[in-house]
Amino acid sequence: MKANIVIAGVGGQGTVLAGKLVARAAMDAGLAVRTSETIGMAQRGGSVVSHVRISDGPIASPLMPQGAADTLLGFEPGEAVRCLPYLRPGGTVVVNAHTVAPVAAALTHTEYSGPAMIDYLGKCGGRLVVIDGDAICAEVGSAKVLNVALIGAAAAAGALGLTLEQIEEALRKSLRPKLVDMNIQALHAGARAAGQAAPQELQKETQ
């Protein structure tokens, strides 16, 4: 079993914790794990990327080469596109539909369209799962559960090699007790959203 996962987002969106949760679940399943993440200066609203590599054999490097990721978790459509070169042909992209505009985008006329980015991801990726992260956050009542919702969507799409139950267990072990229920709710909301998104994807693939 091997799973290479790239997590792309904007500093502050919870990408680091997302990587840790997936790694935790994989470790508990007795698998080898290596991860690498962006900490420090880039965390302040900049582009952040985490690599998570899971395997039942030894893993040489925490960073993977381009074209090697089975799954790309995009917290934001533009950042997903930025990391797309890491995806292998036929890999899965799980992306949040809501864009985070770069600061001063309005000043420098560098705004971009989320739908255009998602359209492009659909053309390049093997499988695309788009979820409305904002709606899930609103449903659960916290803007901070986007990471767990995306993990839920990816797990439900079979893109992590881990089950929702394994992730739930990792949530229980990693989070403060009062945050666990809310995050489990977000995990399943993400999983349901992936289930609803799937038929659309089949349609897209047959076009």
Binding site: Q66, V81, P85, L87, P102, Y120
Partner: peptide, 23 residues
Amino acid sequence: AASSPIGATMLVEAPELPGRPPV
């Protein structure tokens, strides 16, 4: 990988992405 089929597709059609420095 950058010149593999998937990379080539992106070089042609990739929408322009603004930089996102820390703020």
